[in-house]
Nucleic acid binder design. Structure first.
Lengths: 229, 229
DNA sequence: TAAGGTACACATACAGCGTAAGTCTGTCAA
DNA sequence: TTGACAGACTTACGCTGTATGTGTACCTTA
């Protein structure tokens, strides 16, 4: 029985495994096929190794999930303190949505993991700091943070569902919500028909625009909660 | 080998299985222990039956998930058309949050299921109808709907994570976000410390209030998008 | 150079998952 | 009386995460 340690007999130099390499591979796999299809065996195969070998570098699967969630948190742009709070919030919100769009599997995981990692905590502190320095009271800062996060994560959640439906349609292309709703009687659901016939299915409908519309609505409203400049 | 059909030899009269009974039991199980612990075998055991017998009444597990999601949609109060749009939206939003708090497993499932059921479609139409009759243009109605749903589902998502963390703490009680954050240095994350020391961990902090604060903020802002009365 | 400890990949095994496939039996219609 | 059918049953397959034990390569120390 020959071993695979050291330089492989006929293969590549064999980069050694590491926690970081495992997490990176896990992320790639999750991005490619969703987190529900991320299994220890597939991940190991991807790394040219057996499943159990992974446990030398991560505690268990939850540890992997925590790890890749932290990476996503790290991709979110921190809001700059002291300058224009609205611009800082806006940038951070957009960068969050983009990260969640890049890694759809992350929605629903980011909020539910226990033991927040450093990137997560750092973001929290930066958010609250930016709001406090902009003149929000502690209570209002919490409110403002809560509204924004709810909106952002909720939007990402719906975007994910949207994409999930689009994904498993035939290559038909033109119909995203179309086929789902087409067969239901227009006279029974007139208002849905009105929308489906309209711009939502048209080429001008951009999710990014939809996102920023609601975001600006909320940020404008938050301005009213701010204390003195 | 004796059978269990008909009146059980020594047991109860044996209510016959049915799709409805399967779905109700599935919902109870999901409410009790989360949707991830809802398995065909446990569900069958709950109903005094073997796993495979369930397939006589439902197509597969996805069918069950679709079914219980529809039940949750049915628990959401439809917005009344024609009267005060703001009150109607408010009521619907609150009733949605309550439904999602009753059935935490539903968040994340409601948006991702394909093939929306009748209750889902009816709600969509009632929402759009209420907004259209309140003077919103088609575009603005979609925007208004989108903002609200994003906020509601996002809030529910965070509430779920929140509760998940609280659940698996010892019976210690006093610390929900407390223990999670207590050990991190207050001088490195001053703004988090400020909040943790404040009212968020206090007894006055109510998630329902937090929810309604953001909701009202959004509804107020939406008033400005309305067309003529 | 020899001995021992450590790191790490390995194989095996187990309980639990969804469900395809086939079987058995009580009930009802012809 | 017979045959069809509904519906519960058993068995089996390929997955899952991971506990457990083994084997080998390397590094450190004597």
């Amino acid at each position: 029985m020959e071993t695979a340690r050291g330089a492989a007999p006929t293969g590549q130099p064999r980069i050694p495994l590491s926690r970081e390499r495992v997490l990176r591979a896990a992320m790639v796999l999750a991005d490619r096929a969703g987190v529900e299809s991320l299994t220890m065996r597939k991940l190991a195969r991807e790394l040219g190794v057996e499943a159990m070998s992974l446990y030398n570098h991560v505690a268990n699967k939850d540890d992997i999930l925590d790890g890749i969630v932290e990476i996503v948190f790290g991709e979110i742009e921190l809001p700059a303190s002291g300058t224009d709070w609205r611009a800082a919030m806006r940038l951070r919100a957009i960068s969050t949505r983009e990260a969640l769009a890049r890694h759809r599997w992350a929605v629903g995981l980011m909020e539910s993991r226990m033991s927040p990692g450093p990137a997560n905590v750092r973001l929290h502190d930066a958010m609250l700091g930016c709001l406090r320095q902009a003149g929000f009271s502690v209570e209002m800062a919490v409110h403002a943070y809560s509204v924004q996060d709810s909106y952002i994560y909720g939007f990402a959640l719906q975007e994910k569902g949207f994409a999930g439906q689009k994904d498993r349609l035939p290559a038909d292309e033109e119909s995203l919500s179309g086929t789902l709703v087409r067969e239901l009687p227009a006279d029974e659901y007139p208002y849905i028909a009105e929308v489906v016939g309209g711009y939502v299915t048209g080429p001008d409908f951009q999710l990014a625009d939809e996102f920023e519309f609601g975001l600006d609505l909320i940020l404008d409203a938050l301005e009213g909660l701010r204390g003195g400049d």
